[in-house]
Amino acid sequence: MTALLEIRDLVVEFSTGGGALRAVNAVSYDVEPGEIVAVVGESGSGKSVTALSVLRLVPQPPGRIVSGKILFKGDDLLALDDEAIRRVRGGQIGMVFQEPMTSLNPVLSIGRQMTEAMRLHLGLSAAAARDRAAELLTMVGIADPESRLKAYPHHLSGGMRQRVMIAMALSCNPPLIIADEPTTALDVTIQAQILELMRDLCRRLGVALVIITHNLAVVARYADRVNVMYAGSVVERGQAREIYRRPSHPYTVGLMNSVPRLDRPRGAPLEPIPGSPPDLASLPPGCAFQPRCHMATARCRAEAPALSPVAAEHWSACFESQRVAGELVR
């Protein structure tokens, strides 16, 4: 199967007072049609910047896509002119962001915002777009869609607004949706509602979904494949099941040992990763994770490991990957 989205050796830099800062360092990942791919990492890992680069939404300046390719259905999105990329945004690739209140325009009604993209991308008439908007709202579980179309964002709750965002992302039948921390700002029970809804709709409509998150439990429940990012690079990639059964990068293991779990007896001690996330302006030599890694060797301090296979459909950027799985607290 050919990939729907292929990110190849993407490098993105931000210019700061102290020089260029490399937020994304040679990142590659693929998304197959219809699959759910998670990108996991902490703040500053480059997971969001990579996704924003796909839609060329990284503010330039200070950001700059230095090199790499982003192939969507075989076309390089980085080579498109402004007019062409506008047709991709919303039309071919839908977006759902973390904070729906800041992504929706506060002074336009929900109906106006929902129909805009459909009229532009699908060429629908105002009436047809409105009918479809009402249909979409029903599909994402919003009762009384006709009156909701007249409402403004502040009339809706956080969960409702996120449902509207999902309806908008789906409105032009895109083959791909990118969701950046779609439920982080929501309450626990609403978070479950939204994630179940997104998964069910994507499966039913055959839409591929990239979920960007820091929550390992969300990944476990919803993702087919996982990319773990650290300091601007993908450090581990594989099938979700495989990664949880046999994590092969010390950072992935560290993340798993850092979260308390409801399915484990209470009182199991947490094993935090020591130290702080790296300063992108002054990355350590060798592997970016080595200062926080208790398995680090002289080689790790001298040489940066590349992503290499550890098993079928499973890659890790660690020289000691074969020893790593044993470090997981079970």
Partner: peptide, 27 residues
Amino acid sequence: QALLSAVPVPDPEIEERRDHQVLKGEI
């Protein structure tokens, strides 16, 4: 009970077997 049911566990094999009964409606 609903709150606890809504919390996923970081293990795909457990999640596959577990049925989330999602609480309806909003606060």
